[in-house]
Design a protein around this nucleic acid. Sequence first.
DNA 1: ACACCATGTTAGATATACATAACAGGTGCG
DNA 2: CGCACCTGTTATGTATATCTAACATGGTGT
Lengths: 68, 68
Amino acid sequence: MKTRIRELRAKTGITQEELARQVGVRRETIVFLEKGKYNPSLKLAYRVARTLGSTIEEVFIFEEEDLA
Amino acid sequence: MKTRIRELRAKTGITQEELARQVGVRRETIVFLEKGKYNPSLKLAYRVARTLGSTIEEVFIFEEEDLA
DNA sequence: ACACCATGTTAGATATACATAACAGGTGCG
DNA sequence: CGCACCTGTTATGTATATCTAACATGGTGT
């Protein structure tokens, strides 16, 4: 699972720590999300997308394997 | 978190068990999702939405409390 | 060189999504 | 009635998302 978190974060000039704070998680969680190491909960994905001024399906990029 | 799983399932005439089979989870998991007892993983939400011919943000209905 | 800031990584603890199995109630149909 | 089908529930186990704390690194500015 790839994401555009880093890209959107850069666009709004917000840091990992600030995003984490606004979303209500730890900074490490944001790091793992950006690197695609987590399959986040739906609510967390929603909060991240909204905080970045976007939608879930725009922030998180699904691949074919995610359907199997 | 509310969902329109049951509604969309009825529209396509598919059973909980069949949805579970196509999505690749147990039927009980679908029951819990329909009742809003689970905060599913993003991938699972994606698979459910796609199997129902819809999108995540159409199937799962977020509330204000989901942002806090 | 030193200090500061953003990012990355690692290890252990906790919460919870999801699996598994088993059982129960309702509905329709022979 | 009896039977198959769909749905709901409960209990226990496992996997993993997330927390917490600590340390490492590269860049930038002074």
